[in-house]
């Protein structure tokens, strides 16, 4: 008699997710290093505004999370891409997996990592707030803290999380394309340049990032974009065979 065990897709994805959260802890550790480097770079301040009144000149150095975010964004691209490399895909198939379950689990991991990356990027600003006190004698201007502006905190936090998710989903799609053909490696760089340089590209960027009536609209757009990236990646992965 044969006894076949039947697992549902949900069960397998959940098991894979647990497994991946353990196995990919290294990616989270690398995130911490990336953030620390970002913090060191942003110690000089991101922008400063000056003004002179009655023989006194004022300089206000604004320190925001932009630089750290840029570093984390690039980290997100490479983490997304890393998940599509042979080694990572093969690991899945040493256990129970289909391409669909594997992709869903990867996407869930990217979501969780984006949440972690977004929250830590947002909070990393507070490390600077404390560290700068120790290393410099410049006075602080009262700045908005989490407790004073909870709604603003939630909004900014969600934007960061979702932006990181979109970027990592893009990296994931990019990685899948590279797995299909090596030429796609350079396509991303080419695509970024075309987006930035051409008129159409700028129109698209403006449409996505700038022409938003509200933050909610931006968030919805970014989620939709991540889903599109992800669906395309699933389609690509169905062309890939493991352990050829």
């Amino acid at each position: 008699m044969m006894f076949l065990s039947n697992s549902t897709l949900g069960e397998v994805v959940w098991t894979q997710l647990k497994f991946k959260m353990n196995a990919y802890l290294g990616a989270v550790v690398s995130l911490i290093f990336v953030q620390i480097i970002g913090l060191i770079v942003s110690m000089n301040g991101n922008s400063s505004t000056g003004s002179g009144v009655d023989n006194t000149s004022f300089t206000i150095i604004t320190i925001s999370s932009d630089v750290v975010f840029a570093f984390v964004g690039i980290w997100a691209v490479f983490v997304g891409k890393l998940f599509t490399t042979k080694a990572y895909r093969y690991d899945d198939f040493s256990f129970v997996a289909t391409r669909l379950s594997s992709n869903l689990a990867n996407f869930s991991v990217l979501c969780l990592m984006s949440i972690f990356a977004g929250v830590t990027t947002f909070l990393s600003n507070y490390i600077l707030r404390v560290v700068l006190l120790l290393v410099s004698d410049v006075d602080y201007v009262k700045s908005v803290s989490i407790f004073e502006d909870p709604i603003g905190t939630i909004v900014n936090l969600s934007i960061m999380i979702i932006l990181i998710l979109t970027i990592s989903a893009g990296g994931y799609l990019w990685g899948m394309l590279v797995q299909i053909h090596k030429a796609f490696t350079y396509l991303l760089i080419l695509l970024i340049i075309t987006l930035l340089v051409t008129k159409t590209g700028q129109t698209i960027l403006q449409y996505v990032f700038i022409e938003n009536e509200s933050i909610v609209f931006l968030i919805v757009k970014l989620i939709a974009l991540s889903l599109v990236f992800f669906l395309l990646a699933i389609l690509c992965s169905n062309r890939l065979e493991v352990r050829r």
Binding site: T56, T59, T62, I63, N125, V138, D139, D149
Partner: peptide, 12 residues
């Protein structure tokens, strides 16, 4: 000459 740090939660 006065210099201050201002911290921002937003992505500029």
């Amino acid at each position: 000459q006065l210099t201050y740090y201002l911290f921002s939660n937003e992505l500029s």
